[in-house]
Design a protein around this nucleic acid. Structure first.
Length: 230
DNA sequence: AACACACGCAACCGCACAACA
DNA sequence: CTGTTGTGCGGTTGCGTGTGT
């Protein structure tokens, strides 16, 4: 943990949606100081939230490099492929690790939407990983809105950068944020998450889904999962 | 135009685990 | 060894918005 016990103000914690002011406070604090101890973040940042809430907000919403809007077909395939690969052992975070810019929460929500439209027999196959048969990939999946929401954080960027278009919209990744981090913490943070997990990226770049599954079939399941995705 | 319903998403909750005293 | 605390994760809920009637 490495976190000194924090003073424990038994202040009542706010719940519910985050206000722009709270977003700003949290973002500024984490960008400046990092988040070595989440429990102390809300205290030092002047927020009436608990550490868990701050962490969640940062990870799912404020974190630099987050990509919003539609999943690309590659990402669709990657999510399905990874979930198929990992089966019941799949964790959203592990899938998310291989899809930079996408949060586990997004994947989780996406998957639940996906389950809603998926014929039951297919969900059974996919979720249980009971068969080696590849899950059909291109039935009608729920599609995200093609117009990504404009985040408050991006509004801030707009303000700060004199109204320039958020880089996140140009190529899906917030390169402006990436390049502007002087802080070693943030540099490391961003650069570590700056692209697809290399394994997956290679796979996705070089193989169609069918090829991907063909490739997977050449590797024994558990060994592959253990070595590739751990 | 008004209402009901469905859907997507943000956030909370509870649990498991790890680190520390 | 045990209790406490912090972190991370999956599951779930509730609200806002879009769509159909």
């Amino acid at each position: 943990m490495g976190c000194k016990p924090c003073e424990k103000p038994k202040a009542k914690h706010r719940k519910g949606l985050w206000s722009p002011e709270e977003d700003l406070k949290l973002k500024n604090y984490v960008l400046k100081h990092g988040h070595f101890c989440w429990s102390s973040v809300p205290i030092n940042a002047g927020l009436q939230r608990n550490g868990k809430s701050c962490r969640l907000r940062w990870i799912n919403y404020l974190r630099p490099g987050l990509k919003r809007g539609m999943f690309t077909p590659q990402e669709d395939d990657a999510i399905l492929s990874l979930h198929h690969l990992l089966g019941n052992n799949s964790t959203w975070s592990r899938i998310a690790q291989n899809l930079p810019g996408i949060t586990d929460n997004e994947i989780k929500n996406y998957w639940h939407s996906y389950l809603n439209v998926l014929p039951q027999n297919l969900t059974d196959q996919s979720a249980s990983f009971a068969t080696d048969q590849a899950v059909p990939m291109h039935f009608d999946l729920p599609q995200r809105s093609p117009l990504p929401k404009l985040l408050f954080a991006e509004w801030l960027s707009l303000d700060e950068e004199g109204g320039s278009k958020p880089a996140a919209y140009s190529d899906g990744y917030n390169q402006a944020s990436t390049s502007s981090f002087q802080d070693p913490f943030m540099n490391g943070f961003v650069f570590n998450e700056g692209g697809f997990g290399t394994d997956l990226q290679d796979l996705l770049n070089n193989a169609s889904v069918n090829q991907l599954f063909k490739f997977e079939s050449q590797i024994s399941g558990n060994d592959f999962i253990g070595s590739k995705w751990e």
